[in-house]
Computed example of a mutant assay.
Amino acid sequence: MITLPPLGLGTAPIGGLFREVTEQDAAATVEAAVREGVTYFDTAPRYGHGLAEERLGRTVRAAGVADPVISTKTGWLLRPGEKVVTDWTERGIRESLESSLERLQRSFVDILYLHDPDDYPEEVRRTAYPAVRRLRDEGLVGAIGFGMNHSGPLAAYVAEFDVDVVLIAGRFSLLDHDALGTLLPLCRRRGTAVVVGGVFNTGLLADPHPGAMFDYRPVPGEVLARAERCRAICAEFGVPLSAAAIQFPFLHPAVRSVVVGCRSAAEVTGNAESLRLEIPPELWHRLAGAGFVPPELLEA
């Protein structure tokens, strides 16, 4: 069974998600994570067309992290001109991993996720899953799983295949409980580790304001109002909304780690502080009463 630290650094932002990040700021972000004791780093070739992996590889090595936990993803190949193509064949899976290892300056990654294979169940069944399983058997990766944004297709893969870990993004947050329906109970029964990404739903729960992003799009008015209501309830207890958002997934026993994307050292420090903050049980019950926390999570 894979061991995961509670907090991981997501590297999509240092790959330039939504806006460019300088080389200096990217390095400072990873260095701040190391100072805060973060040892889990999640990346993917598609983050900045390889840039996130390159920056992570350089900075982690320079920081002298003895034994980082690194996850990357496969199923998509980078091509010139910022082009990305799907390739779920064994040859494609191996080419993707080999390129990632080169950018990361490593000979091994701890976790390899099949990245967003929502629409490719036959390809996964026929070639992609057998390929990553062989990579695990060969010792090139430590654990295998799926990294996806939709909990229904992800639950179907967990039910069919023997995987070590899954990453579900955006579907288990204070504003979205979709993963609780099938995915999380299934992972608990099967002993599959769960990593939760997107706890801020693309930034909204970090700082609710007009024009904030929600699930990769500008936030609708009614969703913004819900986020502001959630923040107001947290404020009654002296708790920042970001702290409740980061700690919320751990209310479910299947969740082992939360991965948060950061683009600056200040964001890393703030997120680490949010994870350490003690949250009174009364706040969770208050949020449950307002519909932000499923009551069943508080019954244990």
Rank of each mutant, 00 (worst) to 15 (best):
E282D: 13
G289A: 12
S173E: 03
T127L: 14
V293Y: 02
S107I: 08
G145C: 09
V219T: 12
T11E: 02
P5G: 09
G64F: 02
I246R: 10
V258M: 00
F146V: 06
I233C: 02
D137F: 14
T86P: 15
P185V: 01
P68D: 03
V69C: 12
T29Y: 00
T43S: 06
S242N: 13
T43F: 10
T182C: 13
A52M: 07
F18G: 09
V85I: 15
H285T: 12
G48T: 02
E282I: 06
L51Q: 02
V38Q: 05
R190G: 10
A143V: 02
P240K: 04
A62S: 06
R126Y: 14
L78R: 10
Q247H: 07
R94N: 05
F214L: 13
P130M: 12
H49A: 04
R125D: 15
L287Y: 01
P220F: 08
Y47F: 10
E95H: 11
L283V: 06
G181P: 03
L17G: 08
R55A: 00
R136T: 14
T192R: 10
R263D: 13
L101M: 07
W76R: 15
R55D: 00
P45T: 04
C234F: 02
V163T: 11
R231D: 00
H252V: 06
L167G: 09
R19Y: 11
G48C: 05
I111A: 13
Q247W: 07
R125V: 13
A44Y: 10
G289E: 14
T74K: 11
P253L: 03
G181E: 15
P153N: 10
R256C: 10
M148R: 07
L277C: 08
Y129R: 09
E296M: 13
A27L: 02
G197W: 05
P121F: 11
L9I: 07
G152D: 15
L77R: 14
R19Q: 15
T39G: 08
H115V: 06
P210I: 11
M213N: 14
D67K: 15
T72P: 01
A290K: 01
I233H: 05
L298V: 08
R103V: 00
G181N: 14
Y40H: 14
L114G: 11
I70D: 07
S173W: 00
V109I: 04
A155T: 10
R58L: 06
G221Q: 13
